[in-house]
């Protein structure tokens, strides 16, 4: 009897340590990535790197200013398209739990989430780049907004589903029309979570390269015209890293560092937001 119990305790201990070790293995890649990027990238980060444009081949120095601004422009563009559409679709799904259209939208969201980003890039190319006969920030923004949609729709739907039904009732019983009830009572109650979802989707697209290759394309110069090609951090990393010049390789590390910091910052903000502005029912 004694031995039997001890055997179980030993098994328990082995199991616990195994689970712990494997979860450490799971975070190891992230730690290594952060380590390499910091080690190789931090040296080139300075004010000049952040605020100058890339220089032509053969000239020393240069920076990633246009790429940072471009990435921010792309984020804004894609948010403009995806946030209203995504929230609207999420509201619809949470309000109509059954029904043919809801089922269809839900299916599309799942499929869209699994669609390779390069395919979405090709579609944006066909829709916008080909007719306009020019690579453009707009097409990049649209490609990225399609990638943001599933996340925003899903979080909005799931969030609104968790809003207690009695809140909606309280509003409707006051004679508040349905649309105002949704916009002024239900949506605000879930706003923090929805915002978190939006930030996470932004974090997800900030590092996307594939759909930008034949939409936003990349640009040596600063560009504020959404109908012209635009630079972005991922593209700039790709461009610098593919070059044969050692200096540009370190630039690629530096740009990677900035990109990772941006994405990490977005993720942490999202987390902080979710816990700080939590709505209590």
């Amino acid at each position: 009897m004694e031995g039997h119990v001890r055997g179980r305790i030993i098994k328990d201990t082995i199991f616990k340590s195994l689970v712990m070790c494997l979860s450490f293995v799971a975070i190891l890649p992230l730690l290594l990535i952060l380590y390499y990027i910091t080690k190789n990238g931090i040296a080139v980060i300075n004010w000049e790197f952040l605020t100058t444009l890339p220089r032509p081949i053969g000239e020393a120095g240069g920076g990633i200013y246009n790429a940072i601004v471009g990435t921010i422009q792309l984020i804004i563009l894609s948010s403009i398209f995806s946030i209203p559409v995504g929230i609207a679709a999420g509201i619809y799904l949470s309000e109509r739990k059954e029904g043919k259209l809801s089922e269809l939208v839900r299916l599309c969201v799942v499929v869209l989430q699994g669609t390779p980003s390069i395919v979405i890039g090709i579609v944006a190319y066909l829709w916008i780049v080909a007719p306009f006969q020019s690579f453009s920030a707009l097409s990049g923004g649209i490609a990225l907004s399609i990638m943001m949609l599933p996340v925003i729709i899903k979080t909005t739907e799931e969030t609104l589903k968790l809003i207690p039904y009695h809140l909606k009732e309280a509003s409707l019983a006051l004679g508040v029309p349905y649309h105002r009830t949704i916009l002024k009572v239900v949506l605000p109650a879930g706003l923090t979570n929805i915002l978190t979802g939006i930030l996470l989707s932004v974090a997800r697209i900030t590092g996307e390269t594939a759909p930008l290759l034949f939409t936003a394309f990349g640009n040596q110069f600063m560009n504020y015209n959404i109908f012209k090609p635009i630079d972005s951090l991922p593209y700039r990393i790709f461009y610098y890293a593919m070059s044969p010049y050692p200096e540009w390789h370190t630039f690629a590390w530096g740009a990677s560092f900035i990109l990772v910091v941006m994405v990490l910052g977005l993720n942490l903000t999202a987390r902080g937001l979710a816990s700080k502005w939590k709505v209590q029912f």
Partner: peptide
């Protein structure tokens, strides 16, 4: 119209439901 009617009838529910925001 239900929305007009409901403004003239107050309702209090089983579970207190103040607007949380």
């Amino acid at each position: 119209e239900p929305i007009i009617l409901r403004r003239q009838i107050g309702m209090v529910f089983q579970k207190p439901n103040p607007f949380p925001t």
